[in-house]
Simulated assay, not measured.
Amino acid sequence: MKLTIDEAKCCGAGQCVLAAPAVFDQREDDGVVILLDAEPPAAEHGNVREAATVCPAAVISIQE
């Protein structure tokens, strides 16, 4: 699994961080997503898929 994010479209809702805190974080100043691990371990794949599903701005892209 490889992840990319579109920071320009991020609305800072933080749902990704709640779903996968080991993979995503947010900038302090504006809440925009920070990708901590572009190739997360298999144990995080379910959490990452959930994060992508609940993201209101659909900024998380997953390549399997």
Rank of each mutant, 00 (worst) to 15 (best):
M1G: 08
M1K: 11
M1I: 10
K2Q: 15
K2T: 15
K2E: 15
T4I: 14
T4D: 15
I5F: 02
I5G: 03
I5T: 06
D6R: 06
D6V: 07
E7L: 11
A8E: 14
A8Q: 12
A8W: 04
K9R: 13
K9W: 04
C11R: 12
C11F: 04
G12N: 05
G12W: 00
A13D: 11
G14W: 00
Q15H: 10
Q15I: 08
Q15D: 10
Q15W: 09
C16M: 05
V17M: 09
V17G: 02
V17H: 01
L18H: 08
A19C: 12
A19V: 09
A19I: 04
A19H: 02
A20E: 00
A20T: 03
P21M: 05
P21N: 02
P21F: 04
A22V: 09
A22T: 13
A22P: 08
A22M: 13
V23H: 05
D25K: 13
D25R: 07
Q26V: 05
Q26H: 03
R27I: 02
R27Y: 02
E28T: 02
E28S: 06
E28I: 11
D29C: 06
D30I: 07
G31Q: 01
G31M: 02
G31L: 01
V32L: 12
V32A: 11
V33N: 07
V33W: 04
V33Q: 05
I34Y: 00
I34L: 10
L35Y: 11
L35V: 14
L36E: 02
D37Q: 14
D37I: 10
A38G: 14
E39V: 14
E39L: 07
E39M: 07
E39K: 12
P40C: 00
P41C: 08
P41Y: 03
P41H: 05
A42N: 09
A43D: 13
E44I: 10
E44H: 06
H45C: 06
N47A: 15
N47F: 09
N47P: 05
V48D: 00
R49L: 11
E50C: 09
E50L: 14
E50M: 13
E50D: 12
A51T: 02
A52H: 04
T53Y: 13
T53Q: 14
T53S: 11
V54M: 07
C55G: 03
C55W: 01
C55L: 05
A57F: 01
A58C: 01
V59N: 03
V59Q: 06
I60Y: 05
I62Q: 12
I62L: 10
Q63N: 10
